[in-house]
Structures are given as C-alpha cells and as structure tokens.
Amino acid sequence: MTTTAESARPAGSARTPKLRADASRNRERIVLAARDAFVEHGADTALDEIAKRAGVGNATLYRNFPDRVALIHEVAVLVKNRVLALAETATAEADTPDGDGPFDALQRFAHASVEEKVGGLCALFSNHVDPYDPELTDIRKRLQAAVGGLMERARVAGELRPDVESGDLFIALSQLTRPLPNTSCRLHDGFVHRHLQIFLDGLRAPAASVLPGRAATFEDFQPEN
C-alpha cells in the first residue's frame, strides 16, 4: 500500500525503493508469523500476538490487513503459492537431462512441501476462506497440473506405482503436517520427514501389494457445488 508521504516523494527518490522493500518484507513476516500461529493456536489467535511474532507493531499489521479475514486469505495465497513454486521447481528438475529422475524430484517436492504446514491449516482454510476465490482457484489449477504432471513423469519412467494419484500424495502431506493432539508441535515435526519417507517408499514401483479402494484424485479436494 502506498502512503501519502510516499506518493509525495519525487519518482527518483533514493528512499522509495528501500521503503517499498521494507514494507514487502514486513508483510511477508506478518503472513509467515500468522501461518505458524494459526497452526499452533487456531483461527482465534490474537492479531496482536501475530504482530509480536512478526517483529512489527500493531499499526503495521492493521495497515496491511484491516481484519482477520484479510490476513487468513493472504496466508492461504502465500502457502498455496509457495507449494506451487516447489512443484514447478521439481518439474523443471525432472525435465533436466542430467537430473536424477522424476521420482527423486517428486520426493524433494514432498519433503519441501511439508515445511508449509498445510495440514495444520486445512480447517482454517475450509472455514474462513472462499473456496471459489478466483486467485486461489487459479493457484489450485496450476498446482494440480504441476503435481499431476510430475507424477505422470515418474509413472512413465517406471519409478512410480501405477495405482496412485496426486490426491493420495496430498492426503499424506496433509495428515503428516497436522499437529498431533496433546503433543508439542516440536515433537511432531521431528518425525514428519521420517514418516513421509516411509510413505514415499511405498509409492515406488514395483508395488509390493495391491491397494484397497480407489486412488484419491485432486478432484476429491475441490469444493462441493
């Protein structure tokens, strides 16, 4: 947001880029602090506490986000965009001729994605974010294409078992990043990557068993009409 003071400065003012960079960093710090606070304490976390975590004043938080709904929406956008960026990076790595294969790229994506703590935010997004928001819908479609394409590359290469889909992966990422009841988040985090690797090993071809039921698809996560 451009303040009156900023708009009054000459276009070539040396201070303007620095202020804009500072404002951008403050905004990101607020959103990341909100993400962590919402995972730990839920949607009712005091905004003052989030500002304190972010290392900014209350006025800075409210200047960027007039209310809780706006902040939660921005957390959803940030987290989903960061997961999308990870998927697109993994896809680019999988397409590199001298890379180590699409399944390894898929594993790197999965391990990096759990750091975004999506499972701990599922209830927050479901209850407080418009699922039909155009920006989030676009991110969701791009994420579906990126992860689905990455898994298809691994499947064609004979590295991924044929009876799994992107929905199976997202269920695992969601469940593994959901804080366990009556335990500290720190204790839970210590086991996430270990248990994720156990799951990923189960995705490798050839399959060691026949899976019951059907594969979960990305469409299973879409909002109901």
Rank of each mutant, 00 (worst) to 15 (best):
L71H: 10
L71G: 09
L71R: 09
I72C: 02
A76V: 03
L78N: 09
V79E: 06
V79G: 04
K80P: 00
K80Q: 15
K80V: 07
K80C: 09
K80T: 14
R82P: 01
L84P: 06
A85H: 06
L86M: 13
A87T: 05
T89Q: 15
T89V: 09
A90L: 09
T91W: 00
A92C: 05
A92Q: 14
A92V: 13
A92W: 08
A94H: 07
A94G: 07
A94V: 08
T96H: 15
P97D: 07
D98F: 00
D98W: 02
D100C: 04
G101D: 10
P102C: 06
A105F: 03
A105I: 02
L106E: 05
Q107F: 00
Q107K: 14
R108F: 09
R108P: 02
A110V: 07
S113T: 15
E115Q: 12
V118C: 02
G119V: 03
G119Q: 03
G119Y: 06
G120S: 08
G120V: 07
L124M: 14
L124Q: 12
F125L: 13
S126R: 14
S126C: 01
H128Y: 14
D130A: 05
P131R: 08
Y132I: 00
P134L: 01
E135V: 15
E135D: 10
L136Q: 10
L136S: 08
L136G: 11
L136E: 10
I139P: 01
I139S: 09
R140S: 15
R140N: 14
R142L: 01
R142F: 01
R142N: 02
L143F: 04
L143P: 00
A145N: 11
G149I: 12
L150D: 02
L150Y: 01
M151Q: 12
E152M: 10
E152Y: 04
E152A: 08
R153V: 04
A154D: 07
A157Q: 04
A157K: 08
E159F: 12
E159T: 12
L160S: 06
P162L: 02
D163R: 03
D163C: 05
D163M: 03
S166F: 02
D168E: 11
L169H: 02
L169V: 11
I171K: 09
A172D: 03
L173R: 04
S174T: 15
Q175P: 00
T177S: 14
P179N: 04
P179E: 03
P181E: 07
